[in-house]
Each structure stands twice: as structure tokens, then as C-alpha cells.
Amino acid sequence: MTVGVVSFLRGQAWIWSFLATAAVWMATIIFTGGVGGGQILTAALSFAIFTVIVGIGQMFVITTGPGNVDLSIPATMALSGAVTTKLMDTQNELIALGVLVALGIGICVGVFNYLLIRLLRIPPIIATLSASFLVQSTAIAYGRGLRIKPPPALADFTTAQIAGVPVLALCGLAFTAIMGLVLARTMYGRSVLAVGQNMRAAWLAGINVERTRLMTYMLSAMLAGLSGLLLSGFSGGSSLNMGEEYLLASIAVVVIGGTSVAGGRANVPGIWGAALFLYLLVTMLNTFGASAGLRLILSGLIIITVITLAGGGERKR
């Protein structure tokens, strides 16, 4: 029985990111002599959720095949944060409208990305990068770095905790489960996987490849827009550079989480493991008092190790 569980788990690429997370957490706790273990986890969950939300969008994009990536996530977050905080203007009644606008911004950016890729035949990496310049410039022109406080109800919701567990993380968990089902059970999810495995074969099998890609870029941008709204609620307002660190983080969690960069194979639970891992890794090195240079070197080495382990398990299968 135990052997069965172990061999099942070894087959799952995501297990490595969770093992790494646990190891890093243990190391931190041992260093502090057992102080603050629970609070560190609470903090990790509070911040990881934003990486998870954009990471899921990025995962769908990357899964649609080689070359597909969304680099417009940070700019979309900044624009969404700037527009929605200004629109809601600290009034609780306008939160619903704010959410709609955040999603709407995502839809526009997603469609725009797709049109660049499809009509102008620009590779996704360039298309989404150039779209991000336009979106970021719009955010700058619109917001001018204005930090408006979020409506109190939104701030309360994004920072609320139940027994140390952030409410937002619980919602995120439910959302992740739904996205897992979407990927595995729905027509759309299976199309994403099929397109990622072989676009031509998917097309021959009667899958509407272009619609799948359009929907995927829209999904990614919508999640980025939503994340921008939530993040500005969480951190007391939006700022122009609030999305910056999510560019690489969104891609890193996808890869560390065990999703294939070549597309066609996604890993939903791995996103959580990887997001927690990345956060706790920085916390651990900060707690150790490592200098910035050493911290970057160690982060790099540890991430390479985890990816190698996860990838090694994959080849054996």
C-alpha cells in the first residue's frame, strides 16, 4: 500500500515543488528555533495566491504549445489596478463594477494579443511583449502613479484570515480545483492540451485551434486583470510597477510546478507548490541574513535542482 502511494507520488511532477517547499520551510524554522513557523506559512499563502492566479493563466498559455507565452501579465495588472482603484474610488458599492472592468480589461488585452499573433503573424513572445509596452504606457498615462486606496470591503476581503489561513488563499484553492477540472474534463481544456501536443493533429481531429488559442490568451489576461485588482486591495492601492515581479514569477511557477515548456502537458497543483516554494525560498535566505548576491546565486541553484529533479522523474516514466 505504502509502496503504491510512493510510486504514485513519484510519478507526479508536482510532488517535487511541494517537497522543496517543505524542506525550505523546515530549514527556516530550524534556524529561528521554531519561532514564527505558522506566521511564515500565513504570509506565504497570502502572497503566493497572486502568483498562483497569474501562474494558472500563464500555464494555459504555455500549454498551448512551443513559443506560446504571455509577457503582458505585469502591464495588464498595472493597468487593471490603476483603472479599477480610480473607478471604485473607495466605495464599496462599486466593487462589483470594478471586478467587471478588471475582467473587461483582461478581455481587451487578450484579444489584442491574439490579433497581433494571428493577423500580423508576430511570434507570441514579441507580440505580448510589445502589447505590454502599449498597455503599460496606457497605465502610466491614465494613472500617473496615482495611488488610490481600495474600497474598505475589498481591502478587508483580500486581507481576511480564518485561523491563520487567508480567505483569499481558500478562494484561490477552490478556483484552482475548478481550473483543474476545466483542463481535464471540459472540451476547452482538452483542446488546449491537444493543441499543445500537436497543433496540426488537433486541427485534423476537428478542434477549433484558433478559437482555443484566443480563449487561452483571453483567460491569461483576465486572470492578470483580476490579480491586479486583488493585489491593489491587498497592498492598499495600486502602483505602476506592482506587476513587475510577476513576469518571471508567472513563468517560473509554471516550469517549477512540472508543466511542460514544450506544451501539451499541464500541472495544476504544481503551481501552488512552486508559488509557495519561491516565496519561502526568499524568506529563508532573508532569515539566514544572506547578502543579495549570495541570495540570487542560491535561488538560482536551488531552482535548477528542483527542476532537474522534477524533469528527471519525468524521463524515467
Binding site: 529561528t32 519561532v35 513557523g37 511564515i40 504570509a43 502572497f47 532573508n286
Partner: peptide, 12 residues
Amino acid sequence: VAQKAVAGILPS
């Protein structure tokens, strides 16, 4: 970024 980093190190 500051909020994130401080929240991480604060418990220790």
C-alpha cells in the same frame, strides 16, 4: 515588494 519581503521575515 517591500510589503512582501517584510511579511516574510517578520515572524522570525
